[in-house]
Design a protein around this nucleic acid. Structure first.
Length: 821
RNA sequence: GCCGGGGUGGCGGAAUGGUAGACGCAGGGGACUUAAAAUCCCCUGGGAGCAAUCCCAUGUGGGUUCGAGUCCCACCCCCGGCACCA
């Protein structure tokens, strides 16, 4: 009785024991020497979390477990797996939370990190706690600033004015995602637009390379597509339209437009400038001045998001000015309208209402002329247009180009425009330069000193880091500049170049800069005199596998690729793509709906781990559904994996010696084959199912297992349930950690081969019976056996056999027709 | 509107063009037990039938095929992301 009690599976005991052991033995940590000498290095990366005050949520654990299972599998295959974790702790989330709670983020974050660390350790992740990063620690952001300086020195950072969302009530700049339907997400106040000088990284210079490389990196298809769309390459032309004086003479200035349909230029009946376009004042006539000004201030009052999302009916005003259409020679009116965005193309368009839906809508609204310049087959130059026509056809009303097929016309018209000096081929990208300035407190200060004489000067490397000072009053104010601008003692300094009085940059940088390079830092955290050590970086990078959420498909992953590429070009890295493999994991729901505090359906991990153990929790999460698609968490379901681990435990403890049963051994090798194939593909749910199936086979009819049947199962289960696997491995007599060695069982095809197979017998495609025959039996044998089946022969009676389809070891199909009328 | 992913039992989900529903949950019946828990065994898509067996069934409608959840065409719905991108 007492010995039975002692040997019952108590997850909390097993897990505490092994977490302690791993820490004591350094099972998961690398020394500097080990990092240097790794022979089969495998960098297993997962997206580091933002350490919220709420603590680790199920989504985090789901993602980390999926990555950890992968890492543990690689380790069981004999790789040295480096699996670091860190904290992405700067940013507006932390700052706003700290403001709300009335605490300083410098106090809040360390306590959040302690709590996260405690929780992460309980989940059984194979994390190297000797190589963590905390983006808010000066030893980390020193190098974030260093990277800024490298880009600044290379001319990849520039300061320019750009519009931002401004909430006049919260007195702060808002990110686009904080603006809901034109209002501040926190206080509901309508958001305005302000123009502020900001720092940008010139990621657009890398647009084509970022796009081209997508073809040869092994990433989730959805992520690659998202990046491709985000970069948004489009081929077209820039065309120049001369501005006309009020009398009709050319002024010598031009409005440049970008268009993907230069071939429709004969149908450009008016032009539209973005309200912010620098030539608006130039083209506006005195009579129209007030109207134009009114519209512009109205447009500027709208926030960026509302302007792009809400205004479905088009608005705009006539400037009074005209340009000459260089194709037709006619004067056409110039309007301004907010459906033309300053950020895209040249901020100005030629409007071709006949063949562009937006232009058609605008022209209809303001009664501007609509001219057909493309005719579909069966249509002529005068066929009326009831909507914009964007389909195939040939040019009409287009002078010498009449009759040119649209498949040819873009090239033909662009060449003609180029020959006459008013157009050029042009490739345009939707991708914008990366604005890294934040007029907030909780981020790394941008390491720049502004000097009246020298302009912006980079802080010398020897003076890094520029420490973020502890400030009690870090609340943003109406000025729209960073709270650091109120700390005179901090921002007053001397110009590093000329020594004159100067002022530090008071903006901090975007958190995406912190997270854009953290994977480079992990192997090199033992060094404080370099961001990343060349030798270690060459050993461990690029990252072998990166697993994370697709919510970062464009921003984080794009920025990380850009920084890597830029650092490569500057001679700091030997590779230009940071992540060889990237896999996006799915979303986990609760009872088929998204987890959220408002729904009250958030799954809290701690009590689950207490009750069932981390092993069961991990296994259940991986069993819910395909890892790359997500799954639905239901409280009851956890009983499955819980019972499974209990049975594994009992089976191992009760196992005797002896030869394995041949049927069980066959099943074992099929299981090894399946699991070995599915783990690298992240097919976790079906791999777990295979393990369960195998255990059912081992225990079927209440039979007792022998050691040779059950020991391999312990190894196959180890990636999912590492603690219990260690414990059972030890009880099976092994001295070293199950993860210290290539313990993955070998698949033996000979042992997996079946002697007999069941074959489906169909008549006209309908199943009428099954027959058991020797594996590999030939057609004649199988067909004879099939005919001998009573039910089959009944269906073949009075039928004319047309043909017999035979699939080896799978099926026979008799194709027949009735002989009765 | 555009891009991506989906639609299969009561539920989560399995199925290289070849026996649809693996595995698990929930439910039902039974064994063991004084009892309960744990464990083990059996049943569980719908319909007809005493049964053998038959019919229906993977969002809808067509098509290809000896054979379609899987391939092709059209459509409907759900989820995620982007959105006046010229």
């Amino acid at each position: 009785m007492s010995s039975e009690e002692k040997d019952a599976y108590v997850p909390s005991d097993v897990e505490a024991k092994w977490q302690k052991r791993w820490e004591e033995r350094g099972t998961n940590t690398f020394t500097l020497d080990e990092l240097r000498k790794a022979e089969r290095p495998y960098f297993n990366l997962m997206m580091f979390p933002y350490p919220s005050a709420e603590g680790l949520h199920v989504g985090n654990i789901y993602a980390f477990t999926g990555a950890d299972v992968h890492g543990r599998y690689q380790r069981l295959r004999g790789k040295q797996v480096f699996e670091p974790i860190g904290f992405d702790a700067f940013g507006i989330h932390s700052e706003n939370f700290a403001l709300k709670q009335g605490v300083n983020p410098m106090d809040l974050i360390p306590s959040n990190i302690r709590n996260f660390t405690r929780q992460l350790k309980r989940t059984g992740g194979m994390f190297d706690w000797e190589h963590t990063v905390d983006t808010t620690h000066p030893s980390y952001y020193k190098w974030t600033q260093w990277i800024f300086l490298k880009l600044f020195d290379a001319g990849l950072a520039e300061r320019k004015e750009a519009p931002v969302n401004w909430c006049p009530s919260c007195m702060t700049v808002l990110a686009n995602e904080q603006v809901i339907a034109g209002a501040c997400e926190r206080c509901g106040t309508p958001v305005e637009q302000r123009r502020i000088a900001q720092w940008f990284f010139k990621i657009t210079r890398y647009a084509q390379r970022l796009l081209d490389n997508l073809d040869h990196i092994d990433w989730s298809e959805s992520t690659r597509k998202a990046q491709g769309n985000w970069i948004g390459r489009s081929e077209g032309a820039t065309l120049r339209f001369p501005i006309l004086e009020e009398g009709g003479a050319e002024s010598g200035e031009v409005v440049e437009v970008f268009t993907t349909r230069p071939d429709t230029v004969f149908g450009a009946t008016y032009m539209v400038l973005s309200p912010e376009h620098p030539l608006v004042d130039r083209v506006t006539t005195p009579a129209r001045h007030d109207a134009v000004d009114g519209y512009r201030s109205e447009a500027s009052r709208k926030d960026l998001v509302a302007r792009q999302k809400i205004d479905k009916t088009k608005t705009g005003v006539f400037t009074g000015g005209h340009c000459r259409n260089p194709a037709t020679g006619e004067a056409i009116p110039v309007w301004i309208a907010d459906y033309v965005l300053m950020e895209y193309g040249t901020g100005a368009i030629m409007a071709v209402p006949g063949h562009d839906e937006r232009d058609f809508e605008f022209a209809t609204e303001f009664e501007l002329p609509i001219v057909r310049v493309v005719a579909a087959p069966g249509e002529g130059p005068d066929t009326p247009l009831t909507e914009a026509y964007v389909g195939p056809g040939a040019l009409v009303n287009s002078g010498v180009f009449d009759g040119t097929d649209v498949r040819e016309s873009v090239r033909a018209v662009t060449e003609w425009a180029a020959a006459h000096g008013w157009g050029d081929m042009r490739i345009n990208y939707r991708l914008h330069d990366w604005c890294i300035s934040r007029q907030r407190y909780w981020g790394p200060p941008i390491p720049i000193v502004h000097c009246d004489a020298c302009g912006p000067v980079g802080v010398p490397e020897s003076e890094l880091p520029v420490i973020l000072p502890r400030v009690e009053d870090f609340k943003p104010d109406a000025s729209g500049i960073s709270p650091l601008a109120r700390v005179e003692s901090w921002y007053r300094t001397r110009c590093p170049r000329c020594g004159a009085d100067a002022r530090r940059e008071t903006d901090v940088s975007d958190t995406f800069l912190d997270s854009g390079w953290y994977f480079l830092r992990y192997p090199s955290t033992d060094f404080d005199d370099r961001a990343f050590d060349a030798e270690l970086t060459n050993t461990w990078l690029p990252v072998d596998t990166y697993i994370g959420g697709n919510e970062h498909a464009v921003l984080h992953l794009m920025y990380a690729r850009f920084l890597t590429m830029a650092l490569h070009d500057l001679g700091h890295l030997d590779f230009e793509e940071p992540f060889v493999v990237f896999r996006a994991h799915g979303l986990i729901t609760k009872d088929s709906s998204k987890m959220s505090k408002s729904r009250g359906n958030v799954v809290v991990p701690d009590p689950i781990i207490e009750r069932f153990g981390a092993d069961t929790f991990r296994m259940y999460l991986m069993f819910l559904g395909p890892f790359e698609e997500g799954g639905d968490y239901r409280d009851d379901g956890i009983q499955g994996p819980f019972g499974f681990l209990h049975r594994v435990w009992d089976t191992v403890l009760e196992a005797g010696d002896g030869a394995p049963d041949p049927d069980v051994e066959r099943k074992l090798h099929r299981t090894i084959e399946q699991v070995t194939q599915q783990l690298p593909e992240l097919g976790y749910n079906t791999a777990v199912a295979a393990l369960m199936e195998y255990l059912n086979a081992v225990r079927s009819g209440g039979r007792a297992a022998v050691r040779a049947e059950i020991e391999p199962l312990v190894v196959l289960t180890a990636p999912f349930a590492p603690h219990i696997a260690e414990e059972l491995w030890e009880r099976l007599g092994h001295e070293h950690s199950i993860f210290d060695g290539a313990n993955w069982p070998a698949f033996d095809p000979a042992k997996a081969a079946a002697e007999a197979v069941k074959i489906a017998v169909q008549v006209n495609g309908k199943l009428r019976g099954t027959v058991e025959v020797a594996a590999g039996a030939d057609e004649a044998t199988v067909v004879a056996a099939a005919r001998a089946d009573d039910n089959v022969s009944r269906h073949l009676e009075d039928m004319a056999e047309r043909r017999v389809v035979f699939v080896q070891d799978r099926l026979v199909n008799f194709v027949v027709a009735s002989t009765r009328p």
